[in-house]
Amino acid sequence: MLTINNLSVHYGGIHALKGINLEVPQNKIVTLIGANGAGKSSTLKSIMGLAKASGGSIKFNGEDIVNKPTTNMVSKGLVLVPEGRRVFSNLTVEENLFLGAYLRKNKEEITKDLNWVYELFPRLKERVWQKAGTLSGGEQQMLAVGRALMSKPKLLMMDEPSLGLAPLIVKDIFGIIKEIHRNGMTILLIEQNAKAALEVADYGYVLETGSITLEGPGKELMVNDEVQKAYLGEHK
């Protein structure tokens, strides 16, 4: 579905991505793990057209999408839940969700998806009229995911959905990710929480300082020595 070839990103003099290759097949959960500053967010940003790629290609269903405007990506079905949630704190929960459906015209389908989002996140339904800025961190993350679902994504990308959340909430969020996946969604997940990410993922990539150093099925990476040492804490 999504194929990245030799993608490079520069920020001024900094070479953030040094030619990475990545493949997200249809109906799979693929995860990209790595430490701070490894280039995980840069990868997502360049897919969405928020960061300029300095080389390489990104193909979505065979179509080259590198360095196209973000609004085109959204209309093609590429949707990103950004790092740090980035909900519109000055808007109500419902307005945030409707903004997710900004490019969509079919009112019936929008209402259907809105109900689906409320089913997934009953907490949001209780808070429809509340300003998003008054929600707790976990609720804001739910809203960010719900808002992305309202865009009717074909490929849902998530940037550190567990960041700064209590362990119980993290469990909820990953439960939701599995649930969305069962509905047939293709997901590209970026995480520092390598254990949780590899548990749900079909395939994983390890990114270190701008290059992919390891890749393999999620279960294999979980037991890989280097991954264990670097991200999961060494087991005796």
């Binding site: 969405m48 928020l50 973000t70 950004p82 980035r86 519109f88 704190s89 808007l91 900004y102 865009s151």
Partner: peptide
């Protein structure tokens, strides 16, 4: 609604299309 969103966060607004 889009105006209010843009006034809060450019990039997040772009991500809405």
């Amino acid at each position: 609604m889009a105006m209010r969103a843009v006034s809060k966060d450019y990039d997040a607004a772009k991500l809405m299309g």
